[in-house]
């Protein structure tokens, strides 16, 4: 067990099982995002790709896989929704409390392969968190990408995530469209689902599409995009499951023979569908 905080700590890509390498890190900042969601920040140097995840644990409670929602070598952030046994206990942690972590695990978004392309980033609900790392990466390297469209779906304004980043992103020539299915109480938000704000999206060969959200949203968004003429090879989805071991053994996250924890969670659409 290591308890390092401000000192440099590099997470290893190939971590051992739970028994070996849980690291307890003090939380450097907690931000309440919505009634259920909290953003935890750890000022620890770590190497990771957006879309990868950590196994966050509390001894005696259990472990939960949480996607990284930042893109920086200096720190990492985790957005946790209080919804299950473990996450409801994680969300009561305060600044200075220790969280058990192992990771980062999985295959994230390979941002280098998207360079030179137009980007369409689609997130729904808490699925906006994993793609925020992608957007931050684009923001930092804006010159490397073509046009950037961000499409988000939320229930209503009070469920919005990362609204505070919107103006930064817009200032770097990214267009943001928002759909709200319960109440469109945010300026310029469309009443409806993400699929209702895809009209202006036109197929373009040099485009990468990144989707993360509830399974039903991914299914329908992909359906619409494929119908428009986009290729399966250009669509990248994040298929989150309840990963238990995170090293491709326990079988819980298996999708047609692929392990979401090691082969994914980011898949090219044609890899699994």
């Amino acid at each position: 067990m290591t308890t390092s905080s401000q000192t440099d700590f590099t997470f290893h890509k190939d971590h051992l099982m739970a028994e070996d390498e849980i690291v307890f890190l003090p939380i450097d900042a907690v931000t309440k995002q919505t009634d259920d969601e909290y953003l935890f920040r750890f000022d620890v140097k770590a190497k990771y790709d957006p879309g990868q995840f950590f196994q966050c644990s509390l001894l005696g409670i259990g472990e939960s896989a949480i996607s990284i929602c930042s893109d920086s070598e200096e720190y990492f952030e985790l957005s946790i929704r209080s919804v299950g046994n473990v996450t409801s206990k994680l969300c009561v942690l305060k600044k200075g409390d220790h969280m058990g972590l192992r990771g980062p695990y999985g295959h994230g978004y390979e941002m280098d392969t998207f360079k030179g392309k137009n980007m369409i980033v689609i997130g729904g609900g808490s699925g906006v968190a994993p793609v925020r790392g992608v957007i931050q990466n684009i923001y930092k390297n804006r010159g490397h990408f073509g046009s950037v469209d961000l499409l988000f779906g939320f229930r209503q304004k009070s469920f919005m995530l990362f609204e505070e980043n919107f103006s930064d992103w817009q200032s770097e020539d990214m267009t943001i469209r928002i759909a709200m299915n319960e109440k469109a109480d945010y300026p310029n938000a469309t009443k409806g689902f993400v699929t209702d704000i895809l009209d202006h999206i036109l197929p373009n060969k040099n485009t990468a599409i990144i989707i993360c959200g509830p399974p039903i949203m991914i299914t329908f968004v992909a359906k619409v995009l494929l119908k428009k003429g986009f290729q399966k090879e250009d669509i990248f989805i994040s298929e989150e499951r309840h990963m238990k071991c995170a090293v491709g053994r326990c079988g819980h996250c298996m999708i047609h023979g692929k392990y979401s924890c090691t082969d994914g969670p980011v898949f090219r659409y044609d890899e699994i569908y």
């Binding site: 739970a18 028994e19 005696g60 409670i61 238990k244 326990c250 079988g251 819980h252």
Partner: peptide
């Protein structure tokens, strides 16, 4: 050999096993 990972603790939750 698919498996689950669970924590078991004493009543007070202060010690236990994963």
């Amino acid at each position: 050999l698919c498996f689950d990972i669970e924590d078991e603790t004493n009543v007070s939750g202060t010690c236990g096993e994963r």
